[in-house]
């Protein structure tokens, strides 16, 4: 049966962004930049009880070249900040950044000489998940919100 019976003419072209977004949002390859306490909660979320895999984001890639979602999990100090920035620069487009935990969002209660006051001062952030550390349910909700954001994103080729 020809496809034209179902979709109007030209629909494939206009829906390309939607199709790309759909494909991307269910195959998030995350790079866990795990530094601190939030890593324990990230571990819980990724393991079998909460199971990040249900949302297509279960497989961590430990190479920034292969990842498209940088999960910054835990406090970022000034000493590690250049490393984070470098890893962000190494990731290929399209890429998203998740600030996991309140330390990465604002610095949390670590307002001191050693801690970066929010990673948005060094890399752009797509999604903030506050909490110290956020509970796994909250992480999952954040992931769903990220998926919505990815779905709505227009492709770079078209925008340029």
């Amino acid at each position: 049966m020809p496809i034209d019976d179902y979709v109007p003419e030209g629909a494939i072209a206009t829906k390309l962004d939607a199709a790309l977004g759909w494909a991307r949002k269910y195959s998030i390859f995350q790079y866990p930049f795990v530094t601190a306490c939030c890593g324990m909660e990230f571990m819980s979320t990724a393991a079998s009880h909460y199971d990040l895999d249900r949302f297509g984001a279960g497989f961590p890639r430990f190479s920034p070249r292969q990842a498209d979602c940088l999960m910054v999990v835990g406090t970022i100090s000034h000493k590690i900040a250049p490393v984070l920035r470098r890893i962000y620069d190494q990731m290929a487009e399209p890429k998203w950044v998740v600030a996991f935990g309140v330390c990465t969002c604002t610095g949390g209660f670590y307002n001191n000489y050693a801690t970066v006051q929010g990673i948005d001062t060094i890399v752009p952030v797509d999604l903030y998940i506050p909490g110290c550390p956020p509970r796994p349910e909250m992480v999952l909700q954040g992931l769903v919100m990220l998926q919505e954001k990815i779905q709505k994103q227009r492709s770079r080729a078209k925008a340029s």
Binding site: H78, K79, A81, R85, N111, N112, Y113, V116, T121, I122
Partner: peptide, 13 residues
């Protein structure tokens, strides 16, 4: 306690 000397980012931290 809050005197910052960041390596990158805004100079004030």
């Amino acid at each position: 306690i809050a005197k910052r000397q960041p390596l990158i980012g805004p100079a004030s931290g």
